[in-house]
Each structure stands twice: as C-alpha cells, then as structure tokens.
Design a protein around this nucleic acid. Structure first.
Lengths: 159, 159
DNA sequence: ATTTTAACAGAATTAAATTCATAAAATATT
DNA sequence: AATATTTTATGAATTTAATTCTGTTAAAAT
C-alpha cells in the first residue's frame, strides 16, 4: 500500500522540496544553513520525505543532444484493450525509450512520448516493439521539430 | 555560444552519467568505488560534464500527488506566428505550470504539457495567461486520465 | 493536566569533498 | 620515431560534511 492520503507537508518541508528540486546535490549542511536549522533535523526530514514517497527520485538531467538523441515524438494510440485493462500500457511502459505513457480522454486511448536518435531509429523501435503488442489498433505520430521547454519541475507553494 | 558540436564522451563518462541519472545524490566517493578510480579524478570528470552542459541539472522528482497536483493536460495550439518566430513559444515557456513546449510538425504549431491541481485551475490558468498572448488562434486540450509512466531519463549506451 | 509522541539541537565520530603536487598516459608536433 | 605538450589520473593532506545519538523542547493526544 503506497498510501498517499494523509501526506501533510509544512512550510519547512516545502522549502526543502523547493531547494532540492532545483538542486538535488545540495548538501545537507547547505540545506540546514538556508533553513536556519540543525543538519541533523534536516536529515531527518529528508529521510521522512523519501519514506513517504514524496521524494521519488534524485535524478540528473542529461543533455540529450550530447548523446545524439535528437528526436522526440508523441504517439497517439488506439488499443483494443477492454475497459480498465492495463495490458497494453504496461507493455509500452517497459520500452526504455518510451518516457511517458498516459491514458487520455477522447477517442484515442494512449498518448506516448518517445525519445530516440532519429526518425530511422524511431521506425525501427516501432517495428521492434509495437508489432509485439497485440492490441494496438492504430497510431498517429507527431514529430517534434524543436523543443522550447522541457522539465518536470512542479510549482511548489510557499505554504 | 553553448556549443555542443564536439562533445566526446568515453566509457567512463557514460558510466558516470548512468549512475548519476539513476541517483543524483550518489556521493563522489561511491562513484569512485563503482568505477574503480580515485575520487579526485571522478570529481574532475563530473565538473567537466557540468561545464560542457552535458549535465544540465540535478533535480528531485517530487510526487505530484503529494502536492495535490493531479491534473496533466496536453494542449495543441495554433498560433499566428510568422515563420521562425519564437514569440508565442517564449511566452508559453514562461508559465511555471507549463512543463513542456514543443514546436511540432503538422497543422498545429505547438504542443504544450501542463500540470495543475484540477480542471478548474487549468481553466483559470488558461484564462490568466493565454488571453494575454496575442497570436494564439486556437487550442485543443487533451486531458490525462491516468499516467502509467513519466520520466525523462535517457537510454545511455555502454559505449 | 498529564502522558505520549514527534521534532529539533548539539556534540562526537566517521566519512566525504576538495585541493594540490606529482606521475602517467595520450596527443600533437617536429 | 622522438620529443614536447596537453590531458587525465593518483595519493596524501586538509577542510568540510554526513551521520549517529543523547538530551530537550514542543506539540498532540488522552
């Protein structure tokens, strides 16, 4: 049970989250200085935020261009999944190049975000993986020409 | 000039990136142990990766549910921007709740990803911000019912 | 009002970050 | 091919931070 019903975050927690969202490698000591608290107290709070699954991961944003991963595509997919079936989405989520899988309202079923090297590798990826997923009925692919903004950071309230 | 032409990453760099993408708060000492190298050498490489803008940010993934931010929407937008004009996209990118702005191929101009509390706050956000952006011609909004996967991690090759 | 629980501080210990001088390896130059 | 130059790595020394634990304070529950 990953219960998220009763999560209460106070001003201090939000402040910690704001600082760590901006820089996950901030030292515990610097956090303590910013908040005017003892390092031991901050450490305790951070550990609790991890335990409560408020903090899900510390990750490094890597420039995709540095790895020649220049193509982003969004794919709208219709699937023959029965209502509430998660079969197809689970298969899609397993593909490492697939960054996002959303169930969406409307005529289509899924919206998928994919990052690859180029259109050739997108094609080969589609052929390799999608052909093995039985319930896929149709896909519409939208190619990104240029990305102006791309981040997952949340707007964290003061209180 | 943020030049990204001549970025060469060797096996060691990729290994560092893989470990730090998975856990941005890994200690330099642990990195050194994993790679069988001296900590000072690792530190130098990490700093270089930062300088070269290969590493763009260390960030913390925070559970949006913990902040009651339950709604994700994708908006397709047509704009009356002249060819190559970045005016509209730049305005959109300034909105904190807007996580992504992409220029896309096809009939629409932009694809935008937004995260808010609920549909009411999405509406108010659209009214507040979009009304002030002159070139917007039309929008089509797709609401996410459920997110199965959401991450920005790259597939990092061995070599 | 009192008990219980949770949160914080401060000191002590252990561990890590950072710096720097030097050596080794890889590249470039002649 | 030999040498110079640059880049990359090491290891030791120093500074700084992480972590643990005990005692207090504050808050919540009874």
């Amino acid at each position: 049970m990953t219960n998220e019903q009763e999560i209460v975050l106070d001003k201090t927690d939000l402040h910690i989250l704001r600082l760590m969202q901006e820089n996950a490698r901030i030292s515990n000591a610097d956090l303590a200085r910013e908040l005017g608290m003892a390092p031991s107290g901050i450490l305790e709070r951070v550990k609790k935020l991890e335990q409560k699954n408020v903090i899900q991961q510390y990750t490094t944003r890597i420039n995709p261009v540095a790895l020649q991963q220049k193509l982003v595509a969004f794919i709208f997919m219709k699937a023959a999944d029965g209502p509430g079936s998660e079969a197809t989405s689970r298969e899609l989520a397993k593909i490492p190049e697939v960054q996002e899988v959303h169930c969406i309202a409307g005529d289509d079923c899924y919206l998928i975000k994919i990052r690859t090297y180029d259109s050739a590798s997108l094609m080969s990826l589609i052929r390799t993986y999608f052909s093995k997923i039985p319930n896929i009925l149709s896909t519409r692919t939208t190619i990104v020409l240029e990305t102006v903004k791309e981040q997952q950071q949340l707007v964290i309230p003061e209180k």
